[in-house]
Design a protein around this nucleic acid. Structure first.
Lengths: 175, 175
DNA sequence: TATTGTTATACTCTATAACTATA
DNA sequence: TATAGTTATAGAGTATAACAATA
């Protein structure tokens, strides 16, 4: 079989492939930007979660972030050592650690907000405001249809690799 | 600072976040579909690359796929043991292994093409053909603007995690 | 006994470096 | 000596399971 027979339709040219490609790119670009704050994306996500709902237990945070409680320990450890998070004992139930932002942590949160907005603008710089809204609306419909709760993404946890491999330049001709 | 101040704009609601979210979802969905053929996405990508350009060396394939030559060895090993790929010695330069699809490999390639098309249809099922094309056009412009060669994606290799963490349902209100 | 948090262990994936065989 | 392929080693990241403290 010839290559053009093998995948005549659009494996690497279809919308699903573009979504995979751009999703990867967006995640990488965000990781690079957030690295300027000496943060990883998971760390930024944890800070954001704590900022939104201060004083929650690590169990609650783990459930919200969709990660194992054991993973949260190391994350909180690192951010606590850097003085961005605080563990506070709960007098009512001393098993719980209420996680709060420190003052420094709140300052970093403001930085994260700026970085996120810059990131969004950079990724979508090719589109004007109307087009961005158009794209947003289409993506939101796909996300809803696919059962993705807006604001909650899978988290790249069980991800092994990519879409239809990495076809590359040469393949474009046929795809 | 209150959460709504911290990220007033759109960190988890903007187009960039949606791209990350849907990109992850599309990659996972493809991985699940291709697993029905007992393949991983990297394996499918390698088969596709070989199908498009048969007889190339592992070095050439590694460069095209954007991966280290050492990683390709194990990939080719597995697919050769399953009888889908063949290593053929090059009489001219016996250091090279020309990689070819076997007959069984060509049959699997046809399956991959079907799976890829089904995957694309499923992911975009919320949109009618005109809307799919609209989305495709917008994504293609963003991809070009960001310097991504169509058909070649990063490959989820250096990916550490996700966009702005995993904000989750509760955050939607503010985001 | 159940639950929160922690620690220890193992497993997967990938990257780096050393080795061989050919040239 | 330089290159293609291979093997071996190690590193990052994550998941699983056992453990200690508290309820």
């Amino acid at each position: 079989m010839s290559p053009s027979e093998a995948d005549s339709a659009l494996p690497a040219g279809g919308g699903a492939f573009l979504l995979t490609q751009l999703g990867t790119h967006a995640a990488q670009a965000f990781a690079e930007r957030i690295a300027e704050l000496d943060l990883t994306p998971p760390q930024a996500g944890l800070l954001r979660a704590v900022a939104f709902g201060p004083g929650r237990s690590q169990q609650a945070l783990a459930q919200q972030l969709g990660t194992a409680p054991t993973r949260l320990v190391a994350l909180v450890d690192g951010l606590e050592q850097r003085g961005l998070l605080e563990r506070r004992r709960n007098p009512g139930d001393r098993r719980l650690h209420a996680v709060h932002l420190s003052v420094a942590g709140e300052a970093v949160m403001a930085d994260i907000g700026r970085v996120s907005r810059d990131h969004n603008d950079a990724v979508l710089s090719a589109l004007d405001p109307a087009e961005r809204e158009q794209l947003r609306a289409l993506l939101a419909r796909v996300a809803t249809d696919r059962g993705l709760t807006p604001g909650v993404h899978p988290g790249y946890r069980t991800l092994s690799a990519a879409d239809p491999g990495s076809p590359s330049r040469e393949d474009r001709a046929t795809y």
